[in-house]
Computed example of a mutant assay.
Amino acid sequence: MRLWFVPEEVRREGETPDYRFSLANERTFLAWLRTALALIGGGFAVDQFLPDLRGAWRIGIALALLGAGVLCALRAVNHWVRCERAMRRGEDLPVSRFPALLGVVVAVLAVAMVVVVLVGWKG
Score class of each variant (00 low, 15 high):
residue 96 S to D: 06
residue 28 T to I: 13
residue 109 L to T: 10
residue 42 G to F: 04
residue 58 R to P: 11
residue 18 D to W: 08
residue 106 V to M: 11
residue 94 P to M: 02
residue 51 P to K: 00
residue 104 V to S: 12
residue 96 S to I: 07
residue 51 P to A: 10
residue 71 L to T: 08
residue 30 L to W: 03
residue 92 D to K: 04
residue 68 A to F: 00
residue 76 A to V: 01
residue 95 V to R: 01
residue 20 R to V: 10
residue 26 E to P: 02
residue 122 K to D: 09
residue 97 R to D: 15
residue 81 V to E: 12
residue 33 L to W: 05
residue 71 L to F: 12
residue 66 L to S: 06
residue 78 N to I: 04
residue 7 P to C: 09
residue 73 A to V: 02
residue 15 E to C: 09
residue 71 L to Q: 11
residue 80 W to Y: 15
residue 18 D to G: 07
residue 25 N to K: 05
residue 28 T to V: 08
residue 29 F to T: 02
residue 102 L to P: 11
residue 106 V to K: 04
residue 96 S to C: 05
residue 52 D to N: 13
residue 89 R to A: 13
residue 91 E to C: 07
residue 99 P to L: 12
residue 103 G to F: 04
residue 66 L to F: 05
residue 120 G to S: 03
residue 109 L to P: 00
residue 68 A to V: 00
residue 4 W to R: 02
residue 23 L to V: 12
residue 11 R to G: 11
residue 12 R to S: 08
residue 5 F to Y: 08
residue 10 V to S: 10
residue 69 G to F: 00
residue 1 M to D: 14
residue 32 W to A: 01
residue 40 I to L: 03
residue 16 T to C: 13
residue 34 R to N: 12
residue 104 V to E: 11
residue 69 G to H: 07
residue 86 A to N: 02
residue 29 F to P: 00
residue 26 E to M: 10
residue 74 L to N: 05
residue 100 A to M: 10
residue 119 V to R: 13
residue 84 E to Q: 11
residue 10 V to M: 09
residue 47 D to V: 13
residue 78 N to L: 07
residue 112 A to R: 04
residue 47 D to Q: 12
residue 85 R to N: 04
residue 104 V to K: 02
residue 85 R to M: 04
residue 39 L to M: 07
residue 9 E to Q: 11
residue 57 W to Q: 10
residue 16 T to M: 13
residue 4 W to D: 11
residue 36 A to S: 15
residue 49 F to I: 14
residue 96 S to W: 01
residue 118 L to W: 11
residue 44 F to M: 11
residue 35 T to I: 08
residue 104 V to A: 15
